[in-house]
Amino acid sequence: MTSTPPPELTVGQVAARSGVAVSALHFYEQKGLISSRRTSGNQRRYPRETLRRIAVIRVAQRVGIPLRVVKEAFATLPDGRTPDRDDWAHLSAAWCDELDTRIDQLARLRNHLADCIGCGCLSLDRCLLRNRDDRLGARGSGPRRLFTRAVRAEEDEHRDPGTTRS
């Protein structure tokens, strides 16, 4: 005879099953990523589906998707349900462009890492971050040379015809 698992889990059970610290569960709940109900003794009880939500959150975090984006994605699900296979396909497809951008940035960093030893800077003659006389300041904030091709192409479309790249 097999016993039916309880429909709800305590915070400790969720932490043990998901591999996430209790404090992280409280944080996720505070951010609106998961929810619980309170018992008459003010203890949290989570539906079993919370484990799947946490798995999605952890995968997203692992690849660098901000929690804000995860929350926005969860908000697109009908009735706040837990993502199923089709939902995951839709959510992950929406994140692919962002991941491609990050992959491009990491590949650029890896390919030029030997040229830069970190801003000490002992490689000024070939440093990708060097911006002599702040010439790139007119193009916007941030590390202009480290932005991806996609970001640079978008900026090129909006740049005044009289300006040139440095």
Rank of each mutant, 00 (worst) to 15 (best):
1 M>N: 10
1 M>D: 12
4 T>M: 11
8 E>F: 14
9 L>P: 06
18 S>H: 02
20 V>D: 02
21 A>H: 14
27 F>L: 15
27 F>K: 09
28 Y>T: 04
30 Q>S: 14
30 Q>P: 06
32 G>Q: 04
40 S>V: 11
42 N>E: 12
43 Q>C: 08
44 R>L: 02
44 R>H: 07
47 P>N: 03
48 R>F: 01
48 R>Y: 01
50 T>K: 06
51 L>S: 00
51 L>Y: 00
57 I>A: 00
58 R>K: 15
59 V>A: 10
59 V>G: 00
63 V>S: 05
63 V>I: 13
65 I>E: 04
65 I>G: 01
67 L>S: 01
69 V>D: 15
69 V>H: 13
78 P>D: 09
86 D>A: 15
86 D>W: 01
88 W>H: 09
93 A>T: 11
95 W>T: 04
97 D>A: 15
98 E>G: 15
98 E>V: 09
102 R>Y: 03
103 I>Q: 12
104 D>A: 14
107 A>C: 13
108 R>L: 15
109 L>M: 11
111 N>V: 04
111 N>D: 15
113 L>R: 12
115 D>T: 07
117 I>N: 14
119 C>I: 14
122 L>V: 02
122 L>P: 10
124 L>V: 12
125 D>F: 02
127 C>Y: 04
131 N>Q: 06
132 R>V: 10
139 R>N: 02
139 R>I: 00
139 R>P: 00
140 G>C: 02
144 R>S: 11
146 L>H: 03
148 T>K: 06
152 R>C: 06
153 A>S: 12
159 R>M: 09
159 R>P: 06
159 R>T: 09
162 G>H: 08
164 T>Q: 13
166 S>Q: 09
